[in-house]
């Protein structure tokens, strides 16, 4: 009692102690996030080639982006296609694997770790290069197709129809973090609900669609929001595997932004692109939240 009251006293006396403990984060947040963001907002209204001082040009970058830059629209299209196709597929896949791994067996721990691995390494440069080789005309994919009787040297990465799918498959493969979140959500579904469903004579499918899925919707919603944001920011895969080719079909927004800034030395334009992306993500997240009440099951 004595000890805790002294501690209480201490906190009251030193009101700032909380602030002090927060300081490392606050400083990092200000110096590495807020200040650079402010600078980038300023640059977005400038003609800035990195080498010489920025020149204020008003809304020029934004106007050029929306009215003159065709490649910008290609990159928006590619990014939307990628995010809107790969995220749902990845979530479905993650849920499937989570459903299998939720059953406790001796090797479950191992499998959970193993399936989580792609999430960690999948975004790396090494895997991107590996992917590029796999889908090359004489790569593993074509060799495997040869084994089942389809002799081909199809260039997967050079065809406008298939190139983006190689990136989507790579994204689906990185299902680990969504899977872990699904796993813990699955475990939290009360057993009684399934027992009650059994009593009512529900089969496996009914149980999945009437019990599991509704109770998972908050988790699905969370995963969806996080993954869509990640999808819009996809970078490494496109930069390394396809460089946006063929004909900009895989030119992701972040890659085009990088090209503008560091290849074409137009950091002002790239900053403007970054802010448009921020607004875009904000709008999409907002829309997702608006749809929440129609399909997300909230427990009271």
């Amino acid at each position: 009692m004595n000890k805790s009251s002294r501690f209480y006293h201490f906190i009251n006396k030193e009101k700032n102690v909380g602030v002090i403990f927060c300081l490392p984060f606050i400083i990092g947040f200000l110096v590495f996030l807020i200040v650079p963001m402010g600078i980038s907002l300023y640059y977005s209204f400038c003609d800035y080639d990195i080498l010489s001082p920025p020149e204020f040009v008003g809304l020029k970058n934004y106007i050029e982006m929306f009215t003159q830059d065709e490649v910008f629209w290609h990159s928006v299209k590619a990014t939307f296609y990628f995010a809107l196709v790969s995220v749902p597929l990845r979530l479905i896949f993650a849920l499937l694997v989570a459903m299998i791994l939720v059953r406790p067996t001796k090797a479950t721990g191992f499998y959970r770790a193993a399936y989580y691995l792609p999430s960690i390494i999948g975004g790396s440069v090494a895997v991107a290069i590996l992917w590029k080789r796999m889908f090359a005309p004489d790569g593993v994919i074509n060799s495997l197709l040869g084994l089942i009787g389809i002799e081909t040297n199809f260039a997967w990465l050079s065809d406008t129809r298939t190139a983006i799918w190689t990136l989507i498959i790579l994204a689906i493969w990185q299902f680990g973090s969504s899977m872990l979140i699904f796993l813990s959500a699955l475990k939290q579904i009360p057993k009684e609900l399934y027992e009650a469903a059994d009593v009512d004579g529900a089969n496996k499918f009914t149980k999945f669609f009437k019990v599991t899925l509704p109770l998972l919707t908050p988790t699905i919603f969370f995963n969806l929001v996080m993954q869509i944001i990640n999808g819009f920011l996809a970078f490494t895969q496109s930069l390394i595997i396809t460089q946006g080719k063929p004909m900009d079909t895989t030119l992701f927004y972040a890659v085009y932004m990088y090209q503008q800034s560091f290849n074409f030395n137009q950091a002002g334009y790239a900053s403007a692109m970054a802010w448009v992306m921020l607004l875009l993500i904000a709008v999409i997240t907002f829309i997702l939240f608006m749809t929440k009440r129609f399909w997300v099951y909230e427990q009271e």
Partner: peptide, 9 residues
């Protein structure tokens, strides 16, 4: 297993 998984990750 948990420790091993953490180490692997």
């Amino acid at each position: 297993f948990k420790k091993a998984a953490v180490l692997a990750i």
